[in-house]
Design a binder for these strands. Structure first.
Lengths: 150, 150
DNA sequence: CTAAATAGTTAAGCAGGCTAAATTATATAG
DNA sequence: CTATATAATTTAGCCTGCTTAACTATTTAG
């Protein structure tokens, strides 16, 4: 397990800092918005997938379709998702985010990132450019990773 | 709310990818290890702080000391933390991570990062160096941010 | 048309995580 | 010494999130 790649080592170090800074804000956001981890995971998944069925979403999180159905019912009541019948196969429901769902998700992202603004202020223009270049590379490659995020 | 700093914009983009990739693994890790978000947040906090009291840890997460006490009892039973009496003020308990606690935390970090190994493989040596330089800058600045993570 | 498979929902029950309130033990102020 | 404040725990109760099992509706295979 000795990963000697200094790139990976540095990344782990950064991730450690990142998690420590943002995990707590994330927990607070979840509590205040009344969303469970499963709900947040579902909203995230929907924001990428666009649309999914009840069982799909349950599988994605590793829970039964019954649990998924109950959780989605709560999200419908909170008006964060829309649940409509698939006109082609009327057994399945099509779940999509509402506008409000998108907004809540954005809030959650911003909640975890306040400290990054502070960090940005300590950076020179040169440094920002360097970091932006680095991030752009990673974003590109991550997008090409042929995403079976499952 | 129009944040025009391209650095911040890029960072948000990266964070979005990062969250989408790792949130699900994080949820699975939590379920499989039988740890709640509060527990994981507590372990994280202890790994940085080293030592804390019951009420401190509760405050950190925004729950009552009763809730904190109950959660810590479970962590003690799982042998992830050590709870000893403060010899100076015998009302307070000193909570620290056990070796096992550190290990579980590391697992959690690695669980969320498998895909980064894949990403690393798509990078040239040049690119890795560039990204490492960028991360090193951010790590440094983050550490200097005079940490009131609260 | 009938039988089997699939998608989703509902119901009952259990464990976890939280709260408020009461309790115990210790420390501090007057 | 006494009264008050503080740290932690225990208890009772509530709500959530999950499971399994039963049920409904629809599609697909023969």
């Amino acid at each position: 397990m000795s990963n000697t790649d200094p790139f990976i080592a540095t990344f782990q170090q950064w991730q450690d800092i990142f998690m420590h800074r943002s995990l707590r804000k994330f927990i607070h956001f979840a509590r205040e918005s009344g969303l469970s981890m499963s709900m947040i995971g579902t909203l995230f998944h929907l924001s990428k997938k666009g649309c999914a069925g009840v069982t799909d979403l349950g599988d994605h999180l590793g829970v039964t379709s019954a649990a998924s159905s109950q959780m989605l019912e709560r999200l419908v009541q909170q008006e964060l998702i829309l649940r409509t019948e698939d006109p082609i196969d009327r057994r399945v429901k099509q779940i999509v985010l509402t506008e409000k769902g998108h907004q809540v998700l954005d809030e959650g992202i911003r909640a975890r990132q306040g400290w990054l603004d502070d960090l940005a202020e300590t950076l020179s223009l040169e440094e920002k450019k360097l970091i932006k270049r680095a991030l752009d590379i990673m974003i590109n490659r991550a997008n090409q990773l042929e995403g079976p995020i499952e």
